[in-house]
């Protein structure tokens, strides 16, 4: 960093620091404070500032609209809206419990399936994969994230559901029917089908974030455990997974956030019947799919407002879940900006 015109300013004590972690340039801030272009520079800065703030305004506008348009049901039903299972547009009685149940259960099924697989993939890709396989495999899992929801739904309707109906569900009913979780008529579609397709959809998010967190674990940890005579699995368990566990939990929560809000694929396979039944094979309904299905039919204001309140609940829950997950992932990767998945 030689030849900088920094010496012209007696106030600046030292030249700009070396270009390591890129602190704001001292030279630059000095030059910005004077000269013919100060006015246009300030205008430019304000323009960029307004654009950055508009991101916040958009979020605020969404929240405001959702609250405003759901005022009717909020004032009529209050909190009991979320604990009632009535859904009767004709007599104007609305409760969101069946949808909340469907959303939660299908997301939980998705997590149960996806989490072990995702962690397994991350372990394989970061710790034991031969170099020539790593690139193509991580590309494939990224591709899984790029397939649109509606295409997953299409595949689920015509391929996954028949497979579940013919092969998987009869087996589950026979082997685990006594639990009560796999009872009842076998439609193929239903909460289990929604859970499976959600699992496939959130896998890439969880595994790529888990990989990121695992690579952030310093190599010295691995070496220390190996030096004590540990096998590779013991090294992964003690040296890597234990150090990365907070970040992995964050990744799982982020996956949960995605699963809660997922719409199209779930709508196509969950069965769309607002009931609360213990069996995973039965038909259900989720918060996002009731909006997708009934929003355009909502004839009166109360019906519309009930649907928008479900949207508001979804919005609030995903904000909380996302914030929690970001905090956890940040805690491990130490403020390095999380990759946009």
């Amino acid at each position: 960093m030689s030849g900088l015109p920094v010496t012209s300013d007696p106030a600046s004590k030292s030249p700009a620091p070396a270009n390591e972690n890129q602190p704001p340039s001292a030279v630059r801030s000095f030059l910005l404070s004077r000269g013919n272009s100060a006015w246009s520079d300030r205008a430019f800065k304000w323009l960029m500032f307004i654009c950055a703030l508009s991101v916040f305004f958009i979020v605020a506008l969404i929240a405001w609209q959702l609250i405003l348009r759901s005022q009717l049901t909020i004032s009529k039903f209050g909190l009991s809206f979320f604990f009632k299972s009535a859904w009767d547009p004709v007599s104007g009685d609305f409760g969101a419990l069946p949808f909340i149940y469907g959303t939660l259960v299908s997301s939980l099924v998705a997590l149960v399936i996806a989490v072990p697989l995702a962690v397994g993939v991350a372990v394989f890709l970061t710790e034991m994969c031969p170099k020539f396989l790593r690139g193509p495999l991580s590309f494939l899992t990224e591709l899984l994230a790029a397939i649109p929801s509606v295409v997953y739904g299409l595949w689920a309707v015509f391929v996954l559901v028949p497979i579940l109906r013919e092969h998987v569900n009869p087996f589950l009913m026979k082997a685990l029917g006594w639990t009560g979780l796999f009872a009842g008529p076998n439609f193929g579609i239903g909460i289990l089908a929604a859970g499976v397709i959600l699992a496939i959809m959130i896998l890439p998010i969880i595994s790529s974030l888990t990989r990121e967190v695992m690579t952030a674990v310093p190599h010295s940890q691995r070496e220390a455990v190996l030096a004590l005579g540990a096998t590779r699995w013991e090294m992964i368990r003690m040296g890597v997974l234990r150090n990365a566990r907070i970040g992995i939990v964050g990744a799982i929560i982020l996956g949960l956030g995605r699963a809660l809000g997922e719409t199209m694929a779930v709508t196509m396979v969950i069965g769309n019947r607002p009931e609360i039944v213990k069996s995973l094979l039965s038909l259900g309904y989720s918060m996002s799919s009731v909006i997708a299905n009934e929003f355009s039919e909502a004839s009166d204001d109360l019906y519309l407002s009930a649907l928008i309140e479900i949207g508001l609940a979804l919005f609030v829950v995903t904000i909380i879940v996302n914030a929690l997950a970001r905090v956890l992932v940040w805690a491990v990767t130490r403020g390095a900006p999380a990759r946009v998945v």
Binding site: I62, L66, N322
Partner: peptide, 12 residues
């Protein structure tokens, strides 16, 4: 904003 479900974006 990245985490807002797409259906919620639709109704907003």
């Amino acid at each position: 904003l990245n985490g807002v479900p797409s259906i919620v974006m639709g109704i907003s």
